[in-house]
């Protein structure tokens, strides 16, 4: 069971109050009509799925219902940091280029 700090409630709560909403920092194409099928498919379905550090989006669904980001190790399940929407992660995998790890925009 993960013990998660909600940055909005400023409290640690149990995992059951939260819902994992997948990979963070996925940027919706500004003009979807201009996308090729490949670009649109990749935006919708293709994911990093790393074995190691992962930046992911969570929602405090049974609490304040607000979204926030988390950097977590997918192998040890250790939560490295919690940061708000719009912020950049400070714990990053050094083998992955920075702009890829955190997305072009957040």
């Amino acid at each position: 069971m993960l013990h998660i700090y909600c940055p909005h409630c400023a409290e640690y709560r149990e995992e059951e109050e939260f819902h994992a909403a997948g990979q963070a920092h996925i940027v919706r194409p500004l003009d979807p009509d201009a996308c090729t099928d490949k670009e649109w498919g990749e935006y919708l379905f293709f994911r990093k799925n790393p074995r190691g550090l992962h930046h992911e989006l969570w929602v405090h669904s049974a609490g304040c219902r607000k979204f926030f980001n988390m950097t977590r190790d997918t192998q040890t399940y250790e939560i490295k940091e919690i940061y708000k929407i719009g912020e950049k992660p400070s714990v990053v995998d050094s083998s992955v280029p920075q702009e890829i790890a955190s997305g072009a925009a957040s």
Binding site: M1, L2, E56, T74
Partner: peptide, 13 residues
């Protein structure tokens, strides 16, 4: 478990 995990174990919930 709803999150990405490679640890061959999940949460008690």
């Amino acid at each position: 478990d709803g999150w990405v995990g490679y640890g061959q174990r999940g949460s008690y919930g």
